[in-house]
Design a protein around this nucleic acid. Structure first.
Lengths: 193, 193
DNA sequence: TACAGCATGTAAGCAGTTACATGATTCT
DNA sequence: AGAATCATGTAACTGCTTACATGCTGTA
């Protein structure tokens, strides 16, 4: 999935500025499985505008750059839908420095291992929070205004449920295994220093 | 984590050729949370060799290019350990085209949604298989020969357990929610065609 | 006072993917 | 016969991150 399709997808949920789109990928429902930075979003939006797939209206703001609120054109919508149908989905990929580092736990101080695990936990908790908020957004939540009631969209609901289940399983596993893991590390250290 | 550290990390588990290192990232324990392609591994190995962090012995093979079996130098080992200590782990990131596509389930044919979910499931099953094999490798399993018994390494065990828990949670969620999700999609379709 | 958030945009630089080049062997 | 596996290597291309440029508002 290239950044252009990602932007079109974000706009399917409602009009938004580049800044708001990034928020969707950072805190919203997409944050679980995609991400995009401003440095790639702005150029993508500009290009999509040139191709007639999006338009924008500049909202004037005092003492700030105009806020450009983008929306899909009918053609943009059609193009995106076509992309959805045609895309042969690429491999999933998960990257985690923390888990890589923890693979070498036997070479690291136990305190560092514990810190890494805790860091991993707290990140998962943040993610869980994001997913829950995205599933049942509070009024004036992040992202564009909800033109449709998102609770009527089955997709995000299913995906959100999946994300929730995964985060919970992760936190649960750590909860149950962290101490015995650290104890084992300490014993090994004591056994052959 | 840059590709160079990833290669050093792979070699911590034992000597290996570039081709074998890729296998570790494709099927071995690392496949769960990192990946690397041959086009990046070979140049990295060459560079590490120039820097004195790895050496290799060329194993002659009939009618094939010599197999270059790399091993860490003492300095390579030290460098990697230093890296482990110093690295401030980057954000985890998970990318999934399938989940992105499924976010728009309400715009897709139900059959396509089902196919996407099934594809997702089967990929998770493959991953689960890899993780299990990596945790309790069979004799002559993938990757370099096990110079140490991996069952004595707590890190991979913990990580493997985590990966297993996550895969299981995913498969479990899909098992329990797929049908009702598809039914809901079909009902919506029938309700307002 | 300093930092975080809002808000857009450009451009350099780099890391990694993909494709190309080559070729024998073994499995289906 | 064709595909996959083994095996290494180079190079173009792409797409993304990071940093820079600018500047007000609100909070700690």
């Amino acid at each position: 999935m290239d950044i252009r399709s990602l932007c079109l997808g974000a706009l399917m949920a409602g009009d938004a500025s580049g800044y708001e789109i990034r928020k969707m990928f950072e805190e919203g429902i997409f944050s679980y499985f995609q991400m995009a930075s401003l440095g790639s979003i702005y150029p993508a939006l500009t290009k999509l505008g040139q191709e007639g797939l999006v338009t924008f209206t500049a909202q004037e703001q005092e003492n700030r750059p105009d806020k450009k609120v983008y929306s899909l054109t009918p053609e943009g919508r059609r193009t995106f839908l076509r992309t959805l149908f045609q895309t042969r989905p690429g491999e999933d990929r998960y990257r985690s420095d923390i888990l890589f580092l923890l693979s070498f736990a036997h070479e690291l101080p136990v305190e560092l291992c514990e810190a890494l695990i805790d860091e991993y936990s707290s990140r998962q908790e943040v993610m869980l929070e994001h997913i829950r908020e995205a599933k049942c957004p509070t009024k004036s939540g992040p992202g564009p205004e909800n033109t449709e009631n998102p609770c009527q969209m089955a997709g995000p609901d299913f995906i959100g449920g999946l994300g929730e289940a995964v985060c919970k399983a992760t936190l649960d596993f750590i909860d149950k295994n962290k101490e015995s893991f650290l104890t084992e590390l300490r014993n090994r250290r004591a056994g052959r220093p």
